[in-house]
Each structure stands twice: as C-alpha cells, then as structure tokens.
Write a protein that binds this DNA or RNA. Structure first.
Lengths: 205, 205
DNA sequence: GGCCTCAATGGCAGTCACTGCCATATGGCA
DNA sequence: TGCCATATGGCAGTGACTGCCATTGAGGCC
C-alpha cells in the first residue's frame, strides 16, 4: 500500500517535513505567524528545534513550501516544454500546467499559506523573493533554449509580466471564498493574461 | 547658512539618520551586510543600538532608505498629478518625475544600496516588499481619483506592469559601470516602457 | 539666568531565530 | 550480528530586536 520506492530513512524525513508543514500552517493560521515560536511548533510534532532547521532553511520556509513546490515544477517544465507562439503565451501555458499537475492537497496548503503571508510582512517579502529568484532561473533556461541573450530586455520583461499576472491572480484567489479550487486559480491566471492588452491601453480621466 | 526651519532637536535626529545611512552603506558595501553587526555600525557614529532601532525599524531599513524616499515622493505625486492619456503612460511620467526630483546624493546611495541588496537575499526581499506595498497604496489613491474600483483587474495589472519595468531598469542600472547618473536610470525606465509591446509579442522557437 | 516639562537617549535584561559542535541513536548493509 | 553512514538531540553561543526605567538635554516660561 505505502510507497516503498524510497528507503525508510528518506520516507521518515519526508513524513516529518510534511507533518511540520501541515502543523505549521494550522498553528500559524490560528494564532498568527509571530505568535507561534519554532519551539511551539516542533513541540507539537515531537521534534527538536535543531532538526527543524535542518529540514527547513528558516521559519518562513515551512509556510512557503507549497510556493516552492509550484515554482519547482514550473522550472522543471520550462526546460522541456514546446516553444510555440508568443513567449508570453508559452509562459501562461506552462504556469497553468504546473498548477494543474499539483497534488490534491496543494491548493489548500498554498491558499492557507498565502492568507498567513498576507498578514505577515516578513512572509510576503520572502514569497516575492521566491518568485523573483525563479524568474532569474527561468530566464537563464529560456535564454539557453531560444538562443536569446539572458540579459535581453524583452525576455526579462515577458517574465516580469508573467509575475505581474501571477500576483494579481493570487490576490483574487486569496480573497475568494469557498474551498480551495486550483481550477479557479487557473481561471484567474487566464483572465489576467487576457486582460493585459486592455490594462496597457487603459485610459482614465 | 544651515537650515533653521526645524528645531535643533529635529535636526539632530535627522543628522543622525543621515549619518547612519551613509555609514551603513559604506560599511555594508565594503564588508557585506551580514558581516557587519548593528553594534559595529552604531559604534562608528557614537550611538547606542537602542537608538538605532528607534530611528529605523530594522537593520535592513537603513540600506533601503533611498528606496523609501523614491516611493514616498512617487506616492505623493500620484495624488495630484495630471491624469491624461493611458494610465501606464501616466505612471511612467510620474516615476520619471520622481527620479528627477531626488536630491543630488540620492542616486549614489540608491545604487550602492541596490548593489548590497543584490548579494543579500534578505535585503532583496525587503526591497520587493516596499515596491509591492507602494503599489497597493497607489492603487487605492488612483481608484479614488479615477472612480475605478480599487480591485479593478486592469488597474492592478497596470501597476504591476510598472513594477515589472522598474525591476528590469534597476537590474540594468546596477550592472552599468560609471558614476551613478539618475538620467541614465530614467533612460532605462523609458526603454522598458517602450519595449513592453515588443516583449508581449515576442515569439521564439 | 533659573526652572520645569517632555522628548530623546542609553543601559539592561530578556526573547527568539538560527548555527556550530559533539554525543547519541537508528536505518542500511555485509 | 556487527559496522558504517546518516539523522537526530542537546547545548552553548551569536545577533536582531523589544520593553522598561533612569538620565540627559532641548525648548519654553518666569
């Protein structure tokens, strides 16, 4: 029944990681990120603080694990995806694909983490950095595959614009009520990309 | 000769702030952000650590003071600027205007701070958050002035796109050699906005 | 000048995230 | 079973940051 493709030690480690993520999101969501210490958290899952910091680089990272998962698969996909049509369209396709390929429990964790991040500036900052770091990596990958220079302004702008859409979609998803539905997020991402031309042409006053 | 429009006590406070910013950028630039403690820093300017944390919210903030100054004037301007033509064009105009209205020593400090931030993840994250926070404030301001809903997708996208351009311009400015020239940055910002259509249409493969 | 008020500062003790070091325990394997 | 590699725990230490209280010094009033 249980997967045995990994040695017991690895599975134990992964189990502890998952347990910490679940418990952290639950505790932080209920009492607030700053009100729960690492010691509180590891006490709940019978681990030592020292071990926590071997499994995660920081207290923030445990909440942003779903974010890392998403961008990890995004980066993995971008290296082998089909490059057809406008680059922005490709980015949209890969992003949507990455969202749809996530585990069933990803959406709930991601959304819960995002709501915690919204009332915790330090977390919000860290999340922004994850996205920014990823775009740099993606830029290098794409430059290699397309023959463009990694410093090409258009390439970097296209990536930053993808982030722009991603951020707006995220905001709207976090606000939306109801259960965490990744397809809802996909719709918001699509809406964002579709609204780009109109946003650039928007005239006021 | 010296400005006397402020009481002595206020001037002293401001002088200490400026002194701390200057010294911090110098020390962090030479030895690295993580290698210089707050105690090291305040030792150089004969202040207590306790006072440092009353003048700045965090160790990071002292480096990002130029960033705050820029976005502060940007926000101040956006409340009273002329709203004509496409919103994105207005944002470009106000951003350029804000850069050009900075003090003479702003460019050097900003650039030095940016180069420190590039090799200090925590600083980069904080800087991203400043920008993100500002866009939220700007969004609310613009929504009030234009009659748009603050949650309007096109409005938020336009703001995020401005950030996209800003980030690329920043990267290029930090890489560029030579003395810190704000007009050079203005040119990069203009280039970024101008390249947006091409970036969105960019086709590869 | 002398005095009073209040903001700015300094010092101190404490919390908490995070790290290096060493001892211990436990899975993997012959 | 016994050996080795790795994971874990405990401990002591660093450094950012805060609350509290005593002290200093600016600004106004007589």
């Amino acid at each position: 029944m249980t997967r045995t493709d990994l040695p017991l030690r690895e599975r134990k480690k992964l189990r502890n990681r998952r347990l910490l993520v679940d418990t952290a999101i639950e505790l932080f969501g209920e009492h607030g990120f700053d009100e729960v210490t690492v010691e509180d958290l590891v006490g709940r899952v019978e681990l030592s603080p020292r071990t926590f910091f071997r499994l995660f680089d920081s207290k923030e990272d445990v909440v942003l694990e779903p974010v890392q998962r998403l961008w990890g698969t995004f980066t993995a996909t971008i290296g082998s995806c089909e490059l057809r049509g406008p680059l922005v369209a490709t980015l949209e396709r890969v992003l949507v694909g990455a969202i749809e390929s996530m585990d069933d429990d990803w959406a709930g964790q991601f959304l819960a983490g995002r709501r915690i991040a919204e009332r915790t500036p330090a977390l919000a900052a860290r999340e922004l950095r994850f996205c920014a770091d990823t775009t740099v990596a993606i830029g290098a990958l794409l430059a290699g595959r397309t023959g463009l220079d990694a410093t090409d302004l258009r390439l970097r702008l296209a990536l930053e614009v993808m982030l722009a859409v991603w951020h707006t979609a995220n905001q709207d998803w976090a606000v939306a009520a109801g259960p965490a539905d990744p397809e809802w997020l996909v719709g918001l991402v699509r809406d964002g990309f579709a609204a780009l031309p109109e946003a650039l042409g928007l005239t006021v006053g």
